[in-house]
Design a protein around this nucleic acid. Structure first.
Length: 392
DNA sequence: TGCCATT
């Protein structure tokens, strides 16, 4: 690849994004992600795991204690619900050659469990994937990319449910309470969605099940320092083990449905139409009232019927790469493919590329938001791909 | 009792 993602992030951070009021939120989310880079906001994010040989925290390699650890196999957590295995492969394939890739699904419903594995051919690509894709925002999620621990029964079912916590207890304090029992993989305190106040309920995932067992013995029914009530600590329900009712309700949900209700959806549509009016200065009928790709002839032409909406991105720099396209379009929704068109001899970008997005709304939002944006010293032109890529 | 961490 011509440019590493961190270089691109630096480029973006240099203040070239001229956010407009109606795209402020989305761009702000992107800027946050880009300027933060690979985040370490989770307990043991990615390569900070002690069982990983190479990492970005410069820990020495200890091949004696963890000789079996793979340096090519990654686990990817917090994937958007709708992301497919093919999209996962496409995203991580932009870094380097993939040996294998698996999205983990519920055995009964087939629904994504929100995580997957990517095994690279070259350990350097695995390391690069952690450094460039960990912390990437995709839709409402911030994905986590880290080395997969060797699969073993001892690391399964190590997640604890904790209730009765003081409402003032922070995630850090929760970890401080549990860390004496083992290595914490993740921790979380649930908060009220409206007020943001702690619900007094949390989760602690340990590296090993035996560590979780010891924590239950040591902390269940105990009062944390300063607390007036004892806490309850027990094994968390396995989220894939659902009641029949939950399974049924899942089966009746369209896999592509993302908005919670018709009112929200309507609001989304109105907002989208306003954006498109601003972007194009034209009125437009609602394509979502008609299923399929054929209803939009004359407005746009998707790259391939049935595979999504192809977007043309023009005025990319010679050293642009696939990563920047993932970074720019990923926050808007499901991206199935990105492609930078390069000169055969120089391997430099010829100034344009393509992005394929699954859902019309998200593609249109991305276009309305990204068309006209300044990337470095260039103003991007972003539109649905047409038969002829140049304007008259 | 979950911004779904072991194929």
């Amino acid at each position: 690849m011509a440019v590493r993602l961190c270089d691109v992030a630096t480029l973006l951070r240099s203040g070239s994004w001229a956010a407009e009021p109606w795209t402020g939120q989305v761009i702000a989310a992107m800027e946050t992600q880009l300027s933060n880079g690979p985040t370490c906001n989770n307990t043991t994010n990615g390569p900070s795991n002690s069982n990983t040989g190479t990492n970005n925290c410069s820990s020495p390699v200890d091949s004696n204690t963890m000789p079996e650890d793979s340096k090519t196999n990654l686990i990817v957590n917090y994937l958007p619900q709708n992301m497919t295995q093919e999209e996962l492969k496409s995203l991580f394939g932009s870094i380097g050659e993939i040996e294998s890739c698996k999205l983990v699904r519920d055995k009964i419903t087939g629904q994504s469990l929100g995580y997957g594995f990517v095994n690279y051919v070259d350990p350097k690509d695995a390391e690069k994937a952690i450094n460039t894709l960990n912390g990437l925002r995709l839709q409402t999620k911030t994905i986590k990319v880290s080395y997969a621990r060797p699969s073993s029964a001892s690391i399964r079912d190590a997640n604890l449910y904790v209730s009765g916590l003081p409402k003032t207890m922070s995630q850090k304090e929760l970890e401080q309470l549990f860390t004496q029992y083992g290595r914490i993989i993740t921790s979380r305190i649930l908060v009220d969605q409206v007020t943001g106040v702690s619900r007094g309920v949390g989760f602690i995932r340990f590296d090993k099940r035996v560590e979780a067992e010891e924590a239950i013995k040591g902390l269940n029914g105990q009062k944390p320092p300063g607390a007036t009530e004892p806490i309850t600590v027990k094994f968390a329900n396995n989220p894939s083990q659902k009641t029949n009712q939950a399974i049924l309700s899942q089966l009746y949900q369209s896999p592509n449905r993302r908005y919670p209700g018709p009112l929200h959806h309507q609001a989304q549509r109105l907002r989208l139409d306003n954006l498109l009016n601003m972007a194009y200065g034209v009125k437009r009928f609602s394509p979502m009232t008609i299923d399929g790709m054929t209803s939009l002839a004359g407005i746009n032409i998707p790259g391939h019927a049935g595979t999504g909406w192809c977007i043309f991105v023009y005025n990319l720099a010679p050293d642009a790469d696939e990563s920047i396209l993932w970074q720019m379009f990923g926050p808007f929704g499901a991206v199935t493919n990105v492609k930078v068109i390069r000169d055969f001899n120089t391997n430099k970008c010829k100034g344009f590329g393509f992005v394929t997005m699954t859902n019309y709304d998200e593609a249109a939002m991305a276009i309305a938001s990204l068309n006209g944006y300044r990337l470095g010293d260039r103003v991007l032109q972003v539109s649905f791909k047409t038969n002829k890529t140049h304007k008259a």
